[in-house]
């Protein structure tokens, strides 16, 4: 019997589980001297199919856009180069958008990474901590001369994804499994993903909206956020954006 270092069994397994090819650790055998290639292959298959299935469940719109067969092949590359490090599958796929950006066969679909980023943010929102959304009454209760200095607590589920493409339209058209018509992919769209109660919503932000919200998420006061948004986009409508951020549930409270 070969001598075994304490961790050899896991080391030997791990080294062969995710790699392409048919290698197996030499210390595994079948019963009564039978071969163990297929037997080890069961574990290799469980790992690959399990992780690929997890990604197909987490990125349904991305999968629909490129097709099932392409997505699974891409996912196989991804799980080998970016295996999960968290034991929680819902934490997986955080760098899939970046992977897609650098994935040569998708070089012409510049917008696909942003769609994947929205899907990843959707999952974050789904599992985020519960919190009551900020109500308009909390804002109107603030003295007028204090309003511009007011800072907000971001809602735990709120996420922003900015895109130079029509990522939100492409995302929702494919997520809903409805007929996808012609989409002008060149229209820039920013997404606000939120879950004030139990339902995740994805909204398209008006011009300047993302700059405004990002500034507030970063902890800047309302006045500064408004000025930042106006500087980027003179057509920025502060009133509409305040109404929108409250209705969307982007914030959970006012910073004292």
């Amino acid at each position: 019997m070969p001598s075994m270092h304490e961790a050899d069994y896991a080391e030997g397994f791990a080294a062969n589980l995710l790699q392409a090819g048919q290698g197996k650790p030499d210390f595994v055998v079948g019963p009564n001297g039978k071969g163990a290639d297929t037997r080890f292959g069961v574990y290799r298959n469980n790992v690959s199919v399990g992780l690929i299935n997890a990604l197909t469940g987490m990125f349904p719109a991305t999968r629909r856009i490129v097709g099932e067969e392409f997505f699974r092949a891409m996912a196989r590359h991804y799980i080998r180069s970016h295996p999960p490090t968290s034991r929680l599958l819902v934490e997986y796929g955080r760098d899939l958008a970046a992977f897609i950006s650098g994935f040569e066969p998708l070089a012409e679909m510049k917008w696909l990474a942003d769609v994947a980023a929205i899907e990843r943010a959707w999952l974050d929102a789904y599992h985020a901590a519960d919190a009551a959304p900020l109500a308009m009454e909390s804002l109107t209760a603030i003295a007028e001369d204090k309003l511009a200095d007011t800072r907000f607590v971001p809602h735990p589920a709120a996420r922003l994804v900015r895109s130079h493409h029509a990522a939100v339209t492409i995302f929702s058209a494919n997520r809903l499994e409805r007929e996808v018509g012609a989409i002008d992919v060149g229209t820039a769209e920013d997404a606000l993903i939120a879950r004030p109660h139990l339902e995740v919503s994805v909204r398209t932000l008006p011009t300047g909206g993302a700059k405004f919200l990002q500034s507030l998420f970063d902890g800047h006061p309302l006045g500064v956020a408004a000025e930042t948004a106006l500087a980027e986009c003179p057509a920025f409508d502060l009133g509409a954006n305040i109404a929108g951020m409250i209705e969307a549930g982007a914030f959970a409270g006012i910073r004292q």
């Binding site: 069994y9 589980l17 995710l18 469980n46 399990g50 992780l51 295996p83 999960p84 490090t85």
Partner: peptide, 21 residues
């Protein structure tokens, strides 16, 4: 086991049955 060396394999992997394990 399912995690080794900071990689999570998402499967129930087997172990040898020895005094050590």
């Amino acid at each position: 086991w399912s995690t080794h060396d900071n990689v999570f394999f998402n499967d129930l992997l087997p172990l040898p049955y020895t005094e050590r394990t």
